[in-house]
Nucleic acid binder design. Structure first.
Length: 468
RNA sequence: GCCCCGUUCGUCUAGCGGCCUAGGACGCUGGCUUCUCAUGCCAGUAGCACGGGUUCAAAUCCCGUACGGGGUGCCA
C-alpha cells in the first residue's frame, strides 16, 4: 500500500461449482483491488489433476461474471507444473527437501510403536535415508525443528505456530505433480501478490507456505487476511455436499446478481455508516480489510430474499420485464404479463415461474384450487351466497371494464352491507390474495367470470366444508 | 488427541476505553395506508457467554473458564 500497487488474487480449485463461500472470498479480493486501484488476478488452482475439470473452470468464469467481478489477469497452475517442479528440485538439491518412500501404514505403525497417536503425522523417518527416485516416492519439505512461524493477520492479529508441530509435509506427489502449497508459495512470490485474502479454513496451511517461501528466497511475505467462514444453521462451514450453496443455483432460483453480491458483502463486513443496501461503488469506496470482522457468519436466506425483493422493486420496468420474460410460466401469455408487470414486480421475492403463475395464471387459465382454510375464512360468512348471486346477476349487464366492474361489486356490498371483494376474488381467482382484482377481471371473458362465480356459489350449497 | 481461531438482539452487523440507559438491518408482533395481498410509513420485541483483573471509567485492554468452529490427506 505504501507506494506499491496492490495485487490480489482469487484462487479457486475447480473441483466443484463456485459456492457462496468462494464467491465471498472472490468478492472481498475484488473489492479490495478496486478500492486500491490494484490488480485482481484469477488463479485457477488445478494442481490436483484427478479432481479438476475444464467445465468446472467455465462454471467459475460464469459465476464470477454473473456477479460482476471482472479480473485483470489470469493464470492456470496446470500450465506451470514445470516451474513448480524445478522449484522443488532446487529444494532437493539444497537439502531443504528429501525423498521419502514411507507408506501411510508404515508411518502409522511407527507412531503407534513410539507411543504417539496414530494420526500424529509424519515422523521424519526418511530425512537422512537418501531415498532414490522411484515408484511410490514423494518429496517432503524439511521443516525446522525449533522456532516459530507466524504472521500478523490483518483480521486476526498475530498468529503463530511452533515449528515443532509442523510435520515434514509432501511437496511433490509420487506421480510427480507438485502439491498446492508449492504452487501457492511460488505463485504468490513470483506474481508479486501483496495481499492474500482467503477463508479461515486456510490458516493452517499458511505456515507451510511461509516456510516454503523463505526457502525459495522470498523473505517478505504478503499481508494475510483470513476471512471468517460462512456457516450453515448448525454453525458449520458451508459444504457443497450438505448445503445448497452453488452460486449458479441461486441464479437459477431467480436471485438477481446485484442482490446476491450486495448480500455477500454484508457477511463479515458492513459499511460503518450508511445503508447496507447500496450501489457497489459505495462499498468499493468504503472497503477496508481492517474492518472485516472475525467471527463466522450464517448464510441467512431470509435476508437474501429481502435484499432480492428490494432489488427487484428497484429494477426499471423494462429490465424487470426482460428478466421475468425468461422465466414466464406457460400459463401466463406475454401480453397478460406486460399488462400486469408492475403489480407482479412489487410482489416477487425471486424472479421465477411459480410465483408468477400464482399471481397471473388464473386470468387466462383455470382458477387455482383454493386452500381449504382460506376458503372457509372468506366464504363461511352469512351474506356470501347472496353476494355471489347478486354479483353474478349484475355482472351480466354491466359495461365490461375495470371501473364498471369495481362499481358493481362494491355497489352490491353497499346494498347488502357485506364485504364483496374477497368472496368475488376467491371465486374468480381461487385465492384469497393477489394483485388488484378488477383490471384482471376486465381482461377475462364476461361469461367465464360469471361462470366461476356461480360455480363457487354452488360449491357453497353442495358442501359446508368448502372445497374438497 | 494435537494445533489454530472465534464468542454484541433468533440472524447479519455498528461499536476501536467515557458520546452505550448498546445503534442499524433481517425476522417476528402490533398499527396506519389500502379492493385482498404486497409495497410504503410508524411502533414494539430481543443482545455485550461466564469469572477474574487493569483503569477514575470496559461491550471495548489482559488472563482464565465454558461453549462453538476450523485444521490435522500424495484435496485446495
Amino acid at each position: 500500500m505504501t507506494g506499491v500497487s496492490v495485487r490480489v488474487r482469487f484462487s479457486p480449485a475447480p473441483t466443484g461449482y463456485l459456492h457462496v463461500g468462494g464467491a465471498r472470498s472472490a468478492l472481498f479480493n475484488w473489492l479490495y483491488a478496486r478500492h486500491t486501484d490494484g490488480t485482481f488476478i484469477l488463479r485457477i488452482e488445478d494442481t490436483d489433476t484427478d479432481r479438476s475439470a475444464d467445465h468446472l473452470v467455465d462454471a467459475i468464469y460464469d459465476s464470477m461474471r454473473w456477479l460482476g467481478m471482472d479480473w485483470d489477469e489470469e493464470i492456470r497452475q496446470s500450465d506451470r507444473f514445470d516451474q513448480y517442479r524445478s522449484f522443488a528440485n532446487d529444494l532437493l538439491a539444497q537439502g531443504k527437501a528429501y525423498r521419502c518412500d514411507c507408506t501411510r501404514d508404515a508411518i502409522d505403525a511407527r507412531n503407534q510403536a513410539g507411543g504417539r497417536k496414530t494420526d500424529a503425522g509424519y515422523d521424519g523417518f526418511c530425512r537422512d535415508r537418501n531415498v532414490a527416485e522411484g515408484e511410490g516416492v514423494v518429496v517432503r519439505f524439511r521443516t525446522p525443528d525449533e522456532g516459530v512461524t507466524g504472521w500478523d493477520d490483518v483480521i486476526r492479529g498475530r498468529v503463530e505456530f511452533d515449528n515443532a508441530v509442523l510435520e515434514d509435509f509432501i511437496i511433490v506427489r509420487s506421480n510427480g505433480v507438485p502439491m498446492f502449497h508449492v504452487a501457492n508459495a511460488y505463485d504468490d512470490a513470483t506474481m508479486g501478490i501483496t495481499h492474500v485474502i482467503r477463508g479461515e479454513d486456510l490458516v493452517n496451511t499458511t505456515p507451510r507456505v511461509l516456510l516454503l517461501r523463505q526457502a525459495l528466497g522470498y523473505p517478505d511475505p504478503p499481508v494475510y487476511a483470513h476471512l471468517p467462514l460462512i456457516v450453515n444453521e448448525k454453525r458449520q462451514k458451508l459444504s457443497k455436499r450438505r448445503d445448497d450453496v452453488a452460486v449458479g443455483d441461486y441464479r437459477a432460483k431467480g436471485f438477481l446478481p446485484e442482490a446476491m453480491r450486495n448480500y455477500l458483502v454484508t457477511l463479515g463486513w458492513g459499511p460503518r455508516q450508511g445503508d447496507e443496501i447500496a450501489p457497489i461503488e459505495t462499498f468499493i469506496e468504503q472497503f477496508e480489510l481492517s474492518d472485516i470482522n472475525n467471527s463466522p457468519a450464517f448464510f441467512d436466506i431470509k435476508k437474501l430474499e429481502h435484499f432480492n425483493g428490494e432489488y427487484i422493486r428497484a429494477l426499471t420496468a423494462e429490465r424487470f420485464i426482460q428478466e421475468a420474460s425468461n422465466v414466464l410460466p406457460s400459463s401466463v401469455p406475454a401480453y397478460i404479463f406486460q399488462l400486469f408487470a408492475p403489480n407482479v414486480q412489487e410482489r416477487l421475492v425471486t424472479i421465477s415461474a411459480n410465483p408468477i403463475h400464482d399471481l397471473l395464471g388464473w386470468i387466462t387459465g383455470p382458477p387455482a384450487e383454493p386452500d381449504v382454510k382460506d376458503w372457509k375464512k372468506v366464504m363461511n360468512k352469512p351474506n356470501v351466497p347472496a353476494v355471489l348471486d347478486l354479483v353474478a346477476e349484475r355482472l351480466g349487464s354491466v359495461e365490461w371494464n375495470a371501473e364498471a366492474i369495481e362499481a358493481c361489486v362494491f355497489g352490491v356490498g353497499t346494498e347488502l352491507g357485506a364485504k364483496t371483494q374477497l368472496p368475488v376474488r376467491m371465486a374468480v381467482s381461487g385465492a384469497r390474495t393477489g394483485i388488484p382484482l378488477f383490471e384482471p377481471m376486465a381482461q377475462m371473458n364476461r361469461d367465464e367470470v360469471i361462470r366461476r362465480i356461480k360455480a363457487a356459489r354452488s360449491r357453497l350449497d353442495s358442501d359446508d366444508d368448502g372445497p374438497a
